[in-house]
C-alpha cells in the first residue's frame, strides 16, 4: 500500500482533522460500546444552547456530542489521571473508550494509569482481561506552544510493553490507523501532530467507506534506491519534501513512513536498508533513548554487513522545545536538514 500515490484522485479531499472526525463518528456508529471522553471533547457540556461549543482545541470531536449524546460523548473535568483511569476500567468491563489526552506533555499527571494499569493489566492478570482502550493525543513543535505543549514523547510510550503506539502522517492513514486503534483489543496511543492537524500537507483523498490500516506495519511512502529516509508522523512529510529535493540533485531516496512506533515494523526498515545501504532516521523526539536510536541499533545489529555508511539519526536536540520562533525552527528536523544529512551519508 503506497499512500503517496493516492492523493491525486481528489474525488473526496479531507483534511487530517476531517478524516479523524469522520472515523470517530463512523466507529461510534458501527459499535455502540465506543464512547469518547476528555476535556472539552464537546465543549459547554450540560448547557443545551452551547452543545456544539468547541469540539476540542483541534475540532477532532466536533459534532459527536450532537450525534451521539451526552452518555457517549463526555466532557470531563481537568483530571487526566481520573478520566484516563476511568477509561481503563471502562475498557476492562465492556466498553471501547476513546480518550483524549489533550497534549502529550500531560502524560506527567496520568502516567500511572497508562504505564501501570493500561499497559500491564493484560499481562499481569495472565491474559484474563482485555483492554480495548484508545488514547489520542496532540504532539509536536511548530506552533509556538513552548516546552510543555510541543513534545512528541514517542519513546516514553514505546518503552512500555503492552502499549501500541501509532503516529499517522496524513489524512488517509490517520483515518485507517484510528479505526484500527479503536477496534484493537489492546491499549493503543494515537499521536496526532499539531502541524498535520493544522493543515500542513493539505487535504487528500480519503475514502468514505470505513477501512483500517494494520498496526505494526510501516508504509513505503516513496520508493527509491540510494538512501532510506525513515519518518515518523510530521517528519514523514518533511522526508517526502526532502526526497523531492534529493531527486533534483540526482539521488533516489526511499521514504519509510513508520506509522507504528510500537510494535515497530523491523522488517520494513531492514528490507529498505538492504536495498539502499544507507539510512537517515528523522525523529522529532528527544535524542536520548529514542525511537531513532532504537532503529539505528536495529540496523547496526541486523544489517551492519550491508551498510555503506553508519546509520544517521536526525533529531531534535537534547533540549526542551523553545518558544522563540527562531529557536523553535532550529528544534524541528526540517527538510533542509534532512537533505543535508542524506547528502552526508550519500557522499
Amino acid at each position: 500500500m503506497t499512500t503517496a500515490t493516492k492523493p491525486q484522485q481528489a474525488t473526496r479531499r479531507l483534511t487530517y482533522v476531517q478524516a479523524m472526525n469522520e472515523v470517530l463518528a463512523q466507529e461510534m456508529e458501527r459499535d455502540p460500546t465506543v464512547i469518547v471522553m476528555g476535556e472539552d471533547v464537546a465543549g459547554g457540556a450540560g448547557r443545551k444552547q452551547f452543545d456544539e461549543a468547541w469540539g476540542g482545541p483541534f475540532k477532532l470531536t466536533q459534532g459527536l456530542y450532537k450525534k451521539f449524546g451526552p452518555e457517549r460523548v463526555r466532557d470531563t473535568p481537568i483530571a487526566e489521571a481520573g478520566f484516563i483511569g476511568a477509561g481503563v476500567g471502562a475498557a476492562a468491563t465492556g466498553l471501547r473508550p476513546v480518550v483524549d489526552l489533550m497534549f502529550v506533555g500531560f502524560i506527567g499527571v496520568c502516567a500511572d494509569q497508562i504505564f501501570n494499569n493500561a499497559a500491564k493489566m493484560h499481562y499481569m492478570f495472565g491474559g484474563k482481561v482485555k483492554l480495548p482502550l484508545t488514547i489520542f493525543t496532540a504532539t509536536g513543535a511548530g506552533v509556538g506552544s513552548a516546552a510543555q505543549h510541543s513534545e512528541t514523547l514517542y519513546a516514553l510510550f514505546a518503552h512500555i510493553p503492552g502499549l501500541k503506539c501509532v503516529a499517522p502522517s496524513n489524512p488517509y492513514n490517520a483515518k485507517g490507523l484510528m479505526a484500527a486503534a479503536i477496534r484493537d483489543d489492546d491499549p493503543v496511543i494515537v499521536f496526532n501532530h499539531k502541524l498535520l492537524m493544522g493543515g500542513v500537507g493539505g487535504g487528500q483523498h480519503v475514502p468514505k467507506e470505513p477501512y483500517t490500516i494494520p498496526i505494526g506495519k510501516a508504509n513505503v511512502a516513496r520508493e527509491g534506491t540510494d538512501v532510506t529516509l525513515v519518518g515518523i508522523s510530521y517528519t514523514t512529510y518533511n522526508c517526502l519534501q526532502a526526497a523531492d529535493e534529493l531527486a533534483r540533485q540526482g539521488y533516489s531516496a526511499e521514504v519509510i513512513d513508520l506509522l507504528s512506533v510500537s510494535p515497530m515494523d523491523d522488517e520494513a526498515i531492514l528490507n529498505s536498508v538492504r536495498k539502499t545501504k544507507k539510512i537517515v532516521i528523522v525523529d522529532e523526539d528527544y535524542p536520548r533513548c529514542s525511537v531513532a536510536s532504537d532503529i539505528s541499533a536495529l540496523v547496526a545489529e541486523e544489517a551492519f554487513d550491508v551498510l555503506d555508511a553508519p546509520p544517521k539519526r536526525l533529531m531534535a536536540p537534547h533540549a526542551s522545545v523553545p518558544y522563540s520562533p527562531v529557536l523553535e525552527d532550529l528544534f524541528i528536523p526540517s527538510k533542509e536538514k534532512i537533505v543535508e544529512a542524506a547528502l552526508g551519508v550519500l557522499q
Binding site: 481520573g82 476511568a86 481503563v88 476500567g89 471502562a90 475498557a91 476492562a92
Partner: peptide
C-alpha cells in the same frame, strides 16, 4: 491509589451499558 480511577471507570461502564 492507582485502582481508584479504574473503579470509577467500571462504574461508568455499568452506567453506559
Amino acid at each position: 491509589g492507582s485502582n481508584i480511577p479504574v473503579a470509577t471507570g467500571v462504574g461508568l461502564s455499568a452506567r453506559v451499558r
